[in-house]
C-alpha cells in the first residue's frame, strides 16, 4: 500500500517536470536555450516516471526493464544534445540577440586567420 503511494508520487513529479521542459521548448528564443531546458527537464521527468513504475512493480520483469530504461536515457540524452549543439553551431545557426559573449566563435576565427598566415 505504502509502495503504491510512493510510486504514484514519483510519477506525478516526473510528469510535472516533463511539462516544464516542453514549455521551455516552446518559450525560449533560440536552439541552444531550447536544447538546455528540454534536455534537462525531460530526462529528469522521464526518469522519474520510470522510477515510479519500478517502485510500483517491484523486482520482476517489468521493473528491471524500467531500470534499464533509466540507465539508457541517462547515458544517451546528453550525447545527442552535445551532437546537435555542435552541429548547429558549425552550420552557422545564429545565437539569439540577447547573447553577451561567444568565445567559441572567437577561437574559430583565430584558428582560421592563423591558417591563412601559414
Amino acid at each position: 500500500m505504502i509502495r503504491e503511494i510512493i510510486g504514484m508520487a514519483f510519477i506525478l513529479i516526473g510528469i510535472t517536470f516533463d511539462f516544464f521542459g516542453v514549455l521551455g521548448l516552446v518559450r525560449l528564443p533560440d536552439v541552444y536555450n531550447r536544447l538546455q531546458a528540454a534536455t534537462k527537464c525531460v530526462t529528469f521527468g522521464s526518469a522519474g516516471i520510470l522510477l515510479g513504475v519500478f517502485i510500483k512493480q517491484g523486482f520482476n520483469n517489468f521493473g528491471f526493464k524500467a531500470l534499464i530504461g533509466i540507465a539508457f536515457i541517462f547515458l544517451t540524452s546528453p550525447v545527442s544534445a552535445h551532437a546537435i549543439a555542435r552541429a548547429s553551431h558549425r552550420s552557422g545557426i545564429p545565437l539569439t540577440k540577447e547573447t553577451v559573449i561567444d568565445q567559441y566563435q572567437e577561437d574559430n576565427e583565430l584558428k582560421e586567420s592563423g591558417k591563412k598566415d601559414v
Binding site: 516533463d18 536544447l35 530504461g69 546537435i84
Partner: peptide, 16 residues
C-alpha cells in the same frame, strides 16, 4: 535544428 531537437525530445517523452 529546432525540428531535430523536437524529434529527439519526443523520443524521450514516449518512453515515459
Amino acid at each position: 535544428a529546432d525540428r531535430i531537437v523536437a524529434v529527439d525530445i519526443l523520443g524521450i517523452l514516449i518512453i515515459g
